[in-house]
């Protein structure tokens, strides 16, 4: 069995690990849910420029006093960092599609062994729509998926082939779950890091796709002091 974790612990572990991917000066777009948490864990000395789909380049944390003239894509108030820019949607998506954003962090319904992502539609049940996600996975240089390892019913979210409609084809660079970190290297899914007390047989059991194991497999970064 994989070690049991509280939901909050899962979310923190994923967000904290993803925050370690950024370099000083990177421009980053965060999706809703766990991805939003990532901004709380940026290491000291790393300055990241957060971009929001609705037109902020240089978004800061939730302000002390809400001003609804400044919101993020999730509809919560935000502050502006010194030196930020406010742009229209056509420029915001020009930045996204045009390759001017370094990383996007998105949630997932499923990711498959070919780097396909499904995140916007559960046929017959729920159609929230793709929003900006299809443009993000198309234009942003690195697509990071933040997801629990399995869904509520214990089914793997990393699968051989996505069943749900795709957001993008072969677009994912990195998948971070509460138990493992996988990278897509030369179009192959590679296990690179595992969390404390996680055994290989369990990772295999709860991952629905075949994967390679990195020669330099290591402890999941950020978990050193757990």
């Amino acid at each position: 069995m994989l070690p049991e974790l509280e939901e909050e612990q899962q979310r923190i572990r994923i967000a904290r690990r993803i925050a370690l991917e950024f370099k000083d000066g990177d421009v980053v777009n965060l999706g809703i849910g766990i991805p939003t948490l990532v901004s709380d864990y940026i290491p000291e000395g790393i300055r990241v420029v957060f971009q929001t789909e609705n037109g902020v380049v240089g978004a800061g944390p939730k302000p002390v006093t809400d001003d609804w003239r400044f919101i993020g894509a999730g509809g919560r108030c935000l502050s502006l960092q010194p030196g930020s820019a406010l742009v229209s949607s056509e420029i915001s998506f020009g930045l996204i599609r045009g390759g001017h954003i370094d990383h996007t962090v998105l949630g997932a319904l499923q990711v498959d062994k070919d780097g396909n992502l499904a995140s916007w539609w559960i046929p017959g049940k729920l159609v929230p729509g793709m929003g900006g996600s299809m443009d993000l996975v198309t234009g942003v240089k690195s697509v990071i998926v933040a997801t629990s390892h399995t869904d509520k019913n214990g089914n793997p979210k990393i699968v051989s082939t996505c069943d749900f409609p795709l957001t993008g084809v072969g677009v994912v660079s990195l998948v971070v779950t509460e138990y493992a970190v996988f990278r897509f290297l030369k179009r192959r899914l590679v296990l690179c890091e595992t969390a404390p007390q996680v055994e290989m047989k369990d990772i295999k059991k709860y991952t629905g796709a075949e994967f390679d194991v990195s020669d330099s497999l290591s402890l999941m970064k950020g978990c050193e002091n757990e």
Partner: peptide, 12 residues
Amino acid sequence: IYFGTNRNFNPT
């Protein structure tokens, strides 16, 4: 002229 994140799709 526009203000804050109220701009979005409006100018287009």
